[in-house]
Simulated scan of single mutants.
Amino acid sequence: MATLVTFHAHPDDECILTGGVMRKAFEEGHRVVLVVATRGEAGLVPDFLEPGEDLPRRRVAETHASAELLGAARVEFLGYRDSGMMGDDLNDAPGSFWTADAEEAARRLAAILTEENADVLTIYDSFGGYGHPDHIQVHRVGRRAAEIAGTSKVYQAMARRSEIIEAHRRAGMEVPDVFDDGVPESEINVGVDVRKYLDVKRKAMRAHASQITEDSFFLSLDEETFALAFGTEWFIGDGEGPSDALAL
């Protein structure tokens, strides 16, 4: 049995980018650990919170529900605050992940990697997929944590923009301009076929009901278009070739 630690910026990121890999690892008998940097404080506030319930508490509960579906045996939050989108005032707010000391944050993550004797760590690419400050920080912190803990297999999760754009086109949706920049698709060298786990992946998305609504891009797609956008999870793997899979 191996251990996969998947490191994410906010609640719901885990099911979108690595939900299939997490479930695949679980079903193949491996240990899956989810680490989340923030509690998603800057997310949309839904109108169905319980009296006295705040958004972070709801998003933590949603993360645990998603993690259970995806097979995570352990969920940890590093305790930083959501930094909001690049350029928001929240970027520089006290306690934001974007302003966190990367070395300190890396040591927090490395302690979990060491405790779990992690074989594989997933992070994001250097642009954080779409330039979100917390996603960029996940890349920086994750890289350093792997060095500290001696975790040699590090995979940078990223969407293949051409697939996401085509899915928007098929659904008749406007393509967000966040896909204009980023790490080139040509750097992707690992693809994991997760079509077998798409039902679970979609259920995990639904677990994040405060942020992923039924009319969202993620849940409104028909099955074929959803499989196009999310049926393969893509990574940049150190030293891996195009035909390699995410082996645990």
Results as ranks from 00 to 15, higher is better:
residue 230 F to I: 09
residue 62 E to Y: 08
residue 143 R to S: 09
residue 109 L to Q: 01
residue 214 E to G: 03
residue 73 A to S: 14
residue 166 E to N: 06
residue 110 A to R: 03
residue 22 M to Q: 15
residue 65 A to I: 00
residue 203 K to P: 00
residue 41 E to A: 07
residue 156 Q to S: 12
residue 180 D to W: 04
residue 77 F to N: 01
residue 98 W to S: 12
residue 88 D to F: 06
residue 132 H to N: 10
residue 165 I to E: 14
residue 132 H to M: 12
residue 203 K to I: 00
residue 54 D to C: 09
residue 106 A to Y: 00
residue 60 V to C: 04
residue 26 F to V: 07
residue 5 V to D: 01
residue 223 E to P: 02
residue 243 S to N: 05
residue 28 E to Y: 00
residue 182 G to W: 12
residue 12 D to K: 12
residue 232 T to C: 06
residue 54 D to H: 06
residue 123 I to L: 08
residue 150 G to T: 13
residue 70 L to V: 05
residue 80 Y to A: 07
residue 40 G to K: 11
residue 198 L to H: 08
residue 45 V to I: 15
residue 173 M to E: 13
residue 245 A to G: 09
residue 34 L to N: 11
residue 116 E to R: 02
residue 162 S to C: 14
residue 131 G to V: 08
residue 133 P to M: 07
residue 99 T to V: 15
residue 111 A to Y: 05
residue 47 D to S: 06
residue 142 G to R: 12
residue 67 A to R: 09
residue 222 D to S: 02
residue 156 Q to C: 12
residue 223 E to D: 13
residue 113 L to V: 11
residue 99 T to P: 10
residue 37 A to G: 07
residue 135 H to F: 02
residue 180 D to N: 13
residue 248 L to Y: 00
residue 116 E to M: 03
residue 6 T to S: 15
residue 215 D to Q: 09
residue 154 V to F: 11
residue 144 R to W: 01
residue 70 L to Y: 04
residue 236 I to M: 05
residue 241 G to K: 10
residue 191 G to E: 09
